[in-house]
Design a protein around this nucleic acid. Structure first.
Length: 817
RNA sequence: GCAGAUGUGGCGGAACUGGUAGACGCACAGGACUUAAAAUCCUGCGGACGAAUAAUCCGUGCCGGUUCGAUUCCGGCCAUCUGCACCA
């Protein structure tokens, strides 16, 4: 075989010289923005997962280009983040140095893959020319009230004296030293994503995204309808404001629960209970994470000594604190109805609290408590006999009338915590002034550069705090000495807007030009792993909407269509990981076989959307396929085929053209759907048909060469270097990648022969081959002549006859005659 | 616990809105070429009973239903994987 990595290199060089993949922003063709989730340069090299994501997606982009679109296909690097910092702590190599180096390597590898990227439109999020604009976006959100600061718990490892990211906490323990982590409260920055909860939910229905991913986002946002109700606290002018989705059970309230962290606890606790309550709160804060993670754990709580008054019944019920009530969901306060809630029931049993049933089954039968179904109300005064659905409305109306409650909607979605007590990230562009408070760094002073020379090893403080030079500054408002914010931004902030930067990646005056981004974005297709279903994809959607509302964009969603590739597992069926020792490196395969055989094998051997365990047996098969193609082209180039005289297309030619047309149709559909395995299968079938045709006596040169031409073009997006090489050998002088995708000829599709299956009682009995142009009547006539059918007609009563014209025939027989 | 996904030959995997189950390929077996091997080409290849390239039956995780016809639709299970996990 002649194809090898050398062929790849030759064409990569030529394409670069010719600027084949330069994007023409002024093209008149319709735009197509093909985007892949950019990679994180943590490891030194592209791994198999990158290849599986990028190579087929690149083939898709090439396919779109051949279909006549002006394809915009950029690539960049999500370069800030924890792994580089951890690597630095371990090895002493500065994150900036290792990241730079990794990016260079990965860029080279992406070129070796044959990626059709235009590197003039690349972004690297750790570069000042990028993070300047990440910071600028932060300041805009801050000015608009969408960024704010509040106290929030962080994961604290008391042994390492450092704050840990969630990824560094494994089983509630520090990843490095195994110490059980604690929760500590720090003032931290948030984005007000909850303002967009409703829109984020509502727009999902219009997106061409996998339903499962939409579902993940729907659950993540977690909208629920319910009511709030105020319970006065006895002997004070305070009240509890509870949220419930089952306000219909308000007559069954026997106690109240408040989240232990709530501020109100201190105000209501009676002196006799104070000691116990405080101890409980201490314990909660300490063991919070481990204990709360487990739903199995027995519920605990403590009585505050205070009582609340049920606004409808006037009942006096005790107020407890318990960690099964979460501070940040709903109002952090609940009315407990043990008869109709499993958690309340368990708690009531443990602490001997009364249980009052207010719902029973519709058929009046006794029910087992806790009864959480929708039956009918009892023991509820004038609401007895109503269904919970009716009672919810009526009771909420009553609460509203008395001004002690209302209908509300609650979301599980929490505001996005963006502060990180880390070095390797974009500094939060805030200056803290004693007089003016938190002041955003003005645009003219951006970027706030991340200092290179900083001690980033963990010792309990944000690394930037240790740089006096960095910290000391003047307040932009009043000029007084002030200090900088020492935290950096969550890397998800950097990756929430990169797709907007690509089209205008070199702009040093703005994050992006409004007209340019409105023309190019949103991305028409976005390809990446489904592990980003909740976080990244929701953050990017939020950012698009926020920037739209600030007047910088005219569209609502960043990614029109979303495709998730599957995951390639280790040969043992487990997720690849260095610790398991089951990783597979693509490099040796590329060196041995060349990029195209590897690309084609990845696409052919796995279902793109599912992935599967790695197995390289099929690579040899792909090599065989390449050899067969080369042989065909060589035999033409060497004039080894003797052609017959020109005449009307024979049956063989019609059949060849039909298979070719079917291949065009199927491959177009399959690549559009990212079903590369079947697209390649169809391509192989066409070669089988071409070889079959070559065995016939009279080869029609014109038809044959036309079919081979189209056959090669169909290969071009899938195996770009190989197809280019064959194209040259086939005698063509311009690049195959400038060719148009073959057009489907319906007449050809309907030529040749087709099979019509014949069934009796739904079971296949015969199959006849008919001229594809035959009329339905003619086909039916042929069917009726089939021996099986004749036999059935002679021997059985005929109950029914089903004929789907040109597709299938089914005869339903009755008794024997 | 809740939600979602998946389950088809020895293997990877096909099958459009219900219409020839197993495309394409791997592995395997037989044959051709060769002194021989490799490579290549041809043929076969779900299972059962057959000498059979005859006929029949069974077969898409399991049980049942709808239909002339079900991998596909419906109901109920089982298994595996992935999210979320006390969300009031």
């Amino acid at each position: 075989m002649n194809y090898s990595k050398q062929v790849d290199l030759k064409w990569q060089k030529k394409w670069k010289e010719d600027g084949l993949y330069k994007f023409d922003a002024n093209s008149k063709k319709p735009k197509f923005y093909a985007l892949e989730m950019f990679s994180y340069p943590s490891g030194a090299k592209l791994h198999l997962g990158h290849w599986f994501n990028f190579a087929p997606a690149d083939s898709f982009a090439r396919f779109k280009k051949m279909q006549g679109y002006n394809v915009f296909h950029p690539m960049g690097f999500d370069a800030f983040g924890l792994p580089a910092e951890n690597y630095a702590i371990k090895t002493g190599i500065h994150p900036e140095d290792s990241t730079r180096k990794n990016i260079e390597t990965m860029k080279r590898q992406l070129e070796e893959m044959g990626g059709s990227y235009d590197w003039d439109y690349s972004v690297e999020t750790c570069m000042p020319n990028y993070y300047k604009w990440t910071q600028w976006i932060f300041t805009k959100l801050y000015e608009a009230g969408l960024a704010y600061k509040k106290e929030a718990p962080v994961n604290w490892c008391d042994s390492c004296k450092t704050v840990l990211a969630n990824e560094q906490v494994i089983d509630c323990k520090c990843e490095r030293c195994g110490t059980v982590i604690e929760r500590r409260k720090l003032a931290q920055w948030f984005f007000k994503i909850t303002d967009y909860a409703e829109e984020l939910l509502d727009c999902l229905k219009d997106l061409d995204w996998p339903e499962s991913t939409k579902k993940v986002q729907t659950n993540w946002i977690g909208k629920s309808y319910g009511s709030e109700a105020k319970f006065k606290i006895e002997n004070t002018d305070l009240e509890l404001n509870i949220f419930s989705t089952r306000i219909d059970t308000i007559y069954g309230v026997t106690y109240m629960v408040v989240a232990p962290e709530s501020d109100i606890v201190k105000k209501i606790t009676t002196p006799e209970q104070k000691e116990k309550v405080e101890k409980y709160i201490q314990n909660t804060l300490k063991l919070n994470e481990i204990d709360r993670l487990s739903t199995e754990r027995e519920k605990t709580g403590e009585f505050t000594g205070a009582y609340a008054i049920n606004p409808l019944t006037g009942d006096r019920v005790p107020i407890w604190i318990a960690d099964y009530v979460l501070e940040d969901y709903g109002t952090g306060q609940i009315m407990a109805v043990p008869a109709h809630d499993e958690r309340d029931y368990e708690f009531a049993l443990k602490y001997n609290l009364p249980i009052k049933q207010v719902i029973t089954s519709k058929d009046g039968k006794e029910v087992k408590l806790p009864y959480t179904e929708y039956g009918v109300l009892i023991n509820s005064g004038k609401y007895d006999g109503l269904t919970p659905e009716e009672a919810k409305d009526k009771i909420t109306e009553e609460l509203e009338k008395q001004n002690v409650g209302k209908k509300t909607i609650n979301y599980r979605l929490k505001d996005w915590l963006i502060s990180r007590q880390r070095y390797w990230g974009a500094p939060i562009p805030i200056i803290n002034c004693e007089k003016c408070g938190a002041v955003a760094v003005p645009e003219k002073d951006l970027p706030v550069l991340l200092p290179y020379d900083v001690e980033f090893r963990p010792d309990g403080e944000s690394p930037l705090k240790k740089s006096k030079e960095f910290m000391q500054c003047k307040c932009p408002k009043c000029g007084a000495p002030a200090t900088r914010e020492a935290d950096t931004l969550d890397t998800f902030v950097c990756s929430s807007w990169y797709q907007l930067r690509y089209p205008d990646a070199k702009n040093d005056k703005k994050a992006f030009d409004r007209d340019v981004v409105n023309k190019m974005a949103p991305a028409d297709v976005y390809v990446g792993g489904k592990e980003h279903a909740a976080m990244h994809l929701i953050y990017a959607r939020f950012m698009t909407k926020a920037l739209r509302d600030l007047g910088y964009l005219d569209f609502n969603e960043p990614f029109k269509r979303l495709v998730h590739q599957g995951m390639i597992l280790g040969p043992d069926g487990n997720k690849m990981s260095k610790s398991k020792g089951n990783t597979v490196s693509p490099d040796e395969y590329i060196d041995k076989y060349g990029a195209d055989i590897f690309r084609m094998y990845l696409m052919f051997g796995f279902d793109y959307k599912n992935g599967g365990p790695w197995d390289d047996k099929g690579i040899e098969a792909m090599t065989r396929y390449f050899t067969r193609i080369e042989k065909l082209i060589d035999s033409i180039a060497n004039n080894e085929i003797s052609y017959g005289e020109e005449k009307e297309p024979s049956m063989e030619e019609k059949e060849l053209l039909r298979v070719k047309a079917r291949t065009i149709k199927a491959m177009s559909q399959d690549i559009e759907e990212f079903q590369f395995n079947t697209a390649i299968a169809r391509h192989m079938e066409l070669l089988n048909q071409i070889n079959e045709y070559l065995r016939s006596k009279n080869i029609n040169e014109k038809i044959f060469k036309q079919v081979v031409t189209e056959y090669l073009i169909l290969l071009a997006p899938l195996a770009p270097h190989f197809a280019e090489e064959l194209w040259k050998n086939f005698g063509k002088e311009t690049s195959i990648h400038k060719e148009d995708w073959p057009k489907l000829n319906e007449d050809e599709l309907n030529g040749g022969t087709k099979q019509v299956p014949i069934q009796i009682n739904g079971k296949l009995k015969d199959c006849i081959s008919v001229d594809a142009e035959a009329s339905n009547e003619e086909i039916l006539e042929l069917i009726k002549k089939s021996p099986k059918i004749v036999e059935a007609y002679n021997n059985f009563e005929i109950k029914k006859e089903i004929y789907v014209p040109g597709k299938i025939y089914n005869l339903v027989t009755g008794n024997k005659k």
